[in-house]
Simulated scan of single mutants.
Amino acid sequence: MSAQTIKTLTDPAFLTALLVGIAVFATMMTLLPAFGGNPLKNRMKAVALERDELRAKQRARLVAEADRRSRGLREQQSTGMRRVVERLDLRRLLADENTVRQLKTAGFRGQNPMTQFLFFRLVLPFVGLGLAAVYIFGLGVMEDKPMMIRVFACIGAAYAGFYAPIVYVTNRASKRKESIKRAWPDALDLMLICVESGMSIEAAMRKVAEEIGSQSVELAEEFVLTTAELSYLQERRQAYENLAERTGLEPVKSVTQALIQAERYGTPVAHALRVLSSESRDARMTEAEKKAAALPPKLTVPMILFFLPVLFAIILGPAGIQLSQNGGFFGDQPQSSATE
């Protein structure tokens, strides 16, 4: 049975069909978002649902203050992942404040993403170890290697499974922060225009969320959530601090601090937004200049490897062809005539 399995897995026809199937699946997954409708509308719908959830949480908090013995929210039936996480106390072992902050920065809010993150960190090492053991020992892929190397390969697969959720969350947080960072100066300009026209901060953020959604859905989502928190939280300062914590960007933190100071001391918001908008645009221009200045060193190696050989071939090619036709550098010397 094992020999037949190995023969089937090493069959070129089977491998070709498997690769074609994987390519077709990847193509379908790539083209699927194009037929999934407007992503901005879907994200806005998700934000509306989250706003309703935030409103429900606020009402539940008010009820809890009136009757602290009410435990209705805690008596909900737990899912399978939550039961495993709570039974093994994974939150205390694998999670800390940095993990919660990273999940918020990646766009995962609430208890369910944390539960799924901890569950996958528990399960994926065993999955990686099992797959590596079947691939190495079951199929005999590394038969010529020593036993210790095969064991270390299995352990490495388990470690990869353990850190795979962290890598996924980190990559998603980086992409999300980059999207917000690109659209932030334009959002500040729009907010400045709205505030100078007489709109409040809540109305300005709501309007900017509608306009900036085509450029950055993530930033529009953050503005909508901040507007909801400004409406329902007791302290407006907490809403601004939550915005800075969810984004994890220094420009956003500077703006939130300016808004907090304006709320506390009554300073003009438009002036602070004008200064911060100018600073954000200067920072973006400086970053673009840094990238432009770093291009010559990065292009040195590609030019040596790809451009110079082609240039030498174009310049010296005709001369080499002519020399080969003439028989080399010296060519065929004409024989001297016979002496008289």
Score class of each variant (00 low, 15 high):
K298S: 01
S70Y: 09
E75A: 04
R176W: 08
E178H: 10
R91T: 13
R59K: 08
A288H: 07
A258G: 03
V85Y: 00
L311Y: 13
R101L: 11
R237P: 03
L129F: 14
G110W: 01
E210K: 08
A132F: 05
K41Y: 11
A239Q: 02
L15H: 14
I155C: 06
V310S: 07
A313P: 03
M28A: 03
P33L: 13
L299S: 00
R182V: 09
T256C: 03
A244H: 01
I304S: 01
L88H: 01
T300L: 00
M1I: 14
T16C: 13
G317C: 07
V255S: 00
F108M: 04
D11M: 04
G266M: 01
Q116N: 15
Q215D: 03
T8S: 07
P318V: 07
V208C: 06
A64P: 07
T300M: 00
L73E: 11
Q325K: 02
L190C: 02
I260P: 00
R182W: 14
L299M: 08
Q234E: 11
T99S: 09
Q333A: 13
D189A: 06
R121N: 09
E65C: 12
A294H: 13
L9M: 11
N98S: 04
R43M: 08
L19M: 12
Q325M: 10
K57Q: 05
E97V: 02
G327F: 11
F119H: 03
R91K: 15
Q58L: 12
V167L: 09
S337Q: 14
H271L: 05
L54W: 12
T339H: 08
D96H: 05
A26W: 02
V141N: 05
I201R: 02
R121Q: 10
R55W: 15
S337G: 03
A292D: 06
R82I: 10
L88G: 01
M191A: 03
A153F: 05
R55G: 08
S337E: 08
D186M: 08
Q77H: 10
K145V: 07
L243C: 02
T30Y: 12
F306C: 15
R87L: 10
R182T: 07
P33I: 06
E211P: 11
N98C: 15
Q111K: 15
L192P: 00
G317K: 10
Q238I: 12
R237V: 05
M29A: 06
V127W: 11
I22S: 10
D11F: 02
T286C: 12
W184R: 06
A133E: 10
T300Y: 00
T8G: 14
R121M: 13
L139I: 10
Y232W: 08
N242T: 03
L299E: 00
A60P: 11
L311R: 12
M303I: 03
R69I: 15
L124T: 09
G128M: 12
R281N: 07
V255G: 00
L305Q: 01
N112C: 15
R176I: 15
Q333M: 05
T10K: 09
G213F: 02
S2A: 04
I304D: 00
P297Q: 00
